[in-house]
Design a protein around this nucleic acid. Structure first.
Length: 216
DNA sequence: AGAGCGATGGCCT
DNA sequence: GGCCATCGCTCTA
């Protein structure tokens, strides 16, 4: 081992990502997303995720590999950052073994470090509005096209270990038309930085399912 | 609190 | 040409 052992000791290893995507989506809650920029470190605790699997009609990769989604089929533990609605970016962690097109969308984080930089990047000082959505958090963290494909296990954009939440809420995903009935959105209950209070708009009847004291 | 909508551009058929 | 894994504003209640 080299002298970076101490610095990288808390970074999630590739094996973390190379597993079942739903499991990774749940276990990313409580972990810390870290972006080391020229102006300083920006970090936040992941509080909301969504899983996208290869047989899932809402997944960008469900119809096969294209230039846009190619990163999803590559090595797990890399960043899949895509451009959407003409002005926003969304950040994903590529999951499952290489060759499968799967990823976890990080929808919200709780600001921990570099909040002044987030305020500059977002143009607001309201703390619960800095990173409470996939587009917002990319703006706050300065994530854009250049970050697509970066290795999350080494370099300036990483995910570090963190405390496991005691509860996980599970609902349908937000902002999709197909696959809208799959309960593959996960978030930390009562955290003020989650993008929306209850479930997606599609099925207001679906209540969040709270899992207590989960293992694994 | 919730519904509606425009902005804006890349990707894919 | 149609469709977005969004956001912030406006209007109605």
């Amino acid at each position: 081992m080299n002298t970076n052992v101490l610095l990288s000791a808390q970074t999630l290893p590739r094996e973390f990502y190379s597993r079942d995507t739903l499991r990774v989506a749940r276990e990313l809650l409580g972990k810390t997303l870290v972006h080391d920029t020229e102006r300083g470190r920006i970090a936040g605790m992941i509080v909301e995720t969504e899983a996208y699997t290869s047989n899932d009609p809402a997944c960008h990769a469900c119809s096969g590999i294209t230039p846009r989604n190619a990163v999803m089929f590559g090595e797990p533990g890399h960043a899949y950052v895509y451009f959407t609605y003409g002005m926003y970016f969304c950040f994903n962690a590529v999951t499952a073994p290489q060759g499968t097109g799967e990823a976890v969308l990080v929808r919200a984080v709780e600001p921990l470090e570099g909040i002044d930089l987030m305020i500059e990047n977002r143009g607001t000082e309201v703390e619960t509005n800095l990173t409470s959505g996939p587009g917002k958090l990319c703006m706050a963290f300065g994530l854009k096209r250049d970050h697509n494909g970066l290795d999350l296990t080494a370099g300036s954009l990483t995910i570090m270990n963190g405390e496991r939440p005691s509860e996980i809420a599970e609902t349908t995903r937000i902002g999709i038309r197909v696959g809208a009935d799959l309960p593959w959105r996960f978030y930390i209950p009562n955290n003020p930085h989650v993008s929306r209070k209850p479930a997606g708009k599609t099925r207001p009847s679906i209540r969040p399912v709270i899992h207590r004291g989960h293992s694994g």
